[in-house]
C-alpha cells in the first residue's frame, strides 16, 4: 500500500454509527461521528465512560467495524474488509497500547516485544536486534529477560509501548495508557509517547479521561453521548 496523499487525512471517519444489539434492545454507542486525523498528529480522545470513546477507538483500531458510515484508513475503506484483512491492517500499520498492559505472562520482555515481528515474518536474529532497540528506546535496556510479573506497572507499560513501536507502525492507538499508573509514572509514559510522536513522526491516537494527560496531545476531542462535542476538523499542535 502506498502512502496516501499528504493533504488527505490518514484516518477518517465519515458519519460513523455503531449500534450494539438489535430491535428494542438496540443501544447506539456512536451516533454519527465525523473525524479526520492527519499524519503526525497526537490526538487525545476524551469523554466520560459510555460516551463512545472506546467504541470509536475499536473502530479506529480495526478491531470492530461501523454499523453505518465509512472508516477510511490511508484512502482505503475498512468497512468492506474481512476479519483477516483487518488483522493484516493491524499487523502492518497499527500498534496498540492498552490500559491493562496486556503483555504475555511468563514470557520475557524481549519476547513480548518480538511478538509483532514474528507475525510480520521477520527472521529471528533481526527480530531480536529490533526488539532490543525498541526496549532501549523506552529506557528498559537490561530488563530484556524479565517477565511482566517481575516488572513494575510503569515498566510493563513501557514494554507494551516498545511492543507497539517495534514494527514502526503508522498509527499508535493507546487506550487509557496511564489508567493503571500513578501520576509520576504516568508522566514518564506520556513523555515517551510525546517523544515518539515528535521524533519518529508516529501518529498517536490516545483515549484518556485525565485532562492532565490530554495536555500532552496536540489536539483534544471530547465525546459526549456518542457524539463529538468540539474540535471538528480542527488541526493544530
Amino acid at each position: 500500500m502506498k502512502e496516501n496523499h499528504p493533504d488527505n487525512p490518514l484516518l477518517e471517519l465519515k458519519a460513523v454509527t455503531k449500534v450494539y444489539g438489535r430491535g428494542a434492545a438496540a443501544m447506539p454507542a456512536l451516533k454519527g461521528i465525523d473525524l479526520a486525523i492527519f499524519r503526525g498528529e497526537f490526538v487525545a480522545i476524551m469523554g466520560t465512560s459510555g460516551s463512545g470513546k472506546s467504541t470509536c477507538m475499536n473502530i479506529l483500531g480495526c478491531l470492530d467495524v461501523p454499523t453505518d458510515g465509512k472508516y477510511i484508513f490511508q484512502d482505503m475503506s475498512v468497512g468492506g474488509l474481512s476479519r483477516d484483512q483487518r488483522a493484516l491492517v493491524r499487523r502492518h500499520f497499527l500498534g496498540f497500547v492498552f490500559q491493562g498492559f496486556n503483555l504475555l505472562n511468563r514470557t520475557s520482555a524481549l519476547e513480548n516485544v518480538e511478538l509483532p515481528l514474528i507475525y510480520r515474518g521477520v527472521r529471528p536474529g533481526e527480530r531480536r536486534k529490533r526488539a532490543r532497540e525498541a526496549l532501549a528506546a523506552v529506557n528498559l535496556s537490561g530488563w530484556e529477560a524479565h517477565t511482566p510479573g517481575e516488572l513494575s506497572g510503569g515498566q510493563q507499560q513501557r514494554v507494551a509501548i516498545a511492543r507497539a513501536i517495534v514494527s514502526h507502525p503508522e498509527v499508535l492507538l493507546a487506550d487509557e495508557p496511564t489508567g493503571n499508573l500513578d501520576s509520576a509514572t504516568s508522566r514518564d509514559v506520556m513523555n515517551l509517547l510525546q517523544r515518539f510522536n515528535r521524533e519518529n513522526g508516529i501518529t498517536i491516537v490516545m483515549v484518556t479521561h485525565e485532562p492532565e494527560m490530554a495536555e500532552y496531545a496536540g489536539r483534544r476531542i471530547h465525546f459526549t453521548d456518542g457524539l463529538i462535542d468540539n474540535g471538528l476538523m480542527k488541526r493544530g499542535r
Binding site: G61, L63, R83, D84, A87, L88, V89, R90, R91, H92, L94, F96, N102, L103, L104, N105, L115, P116, Y119, R120, R163
Partner: peptide, 16 residues
C-alpha cells in the same frame, strides 16, 4: 483467552 486477544490485536490471522 487474553493471550489470544493480544495475538489477534497485534495482527495474527485466524489461521495462525
Amino acid at each position: 483467552t487474553r493471550e489470544i486477544g493480544i495475538r489477534l490485536a497485534i495482527g495474527a490471522l485466524e489461521k495462525e
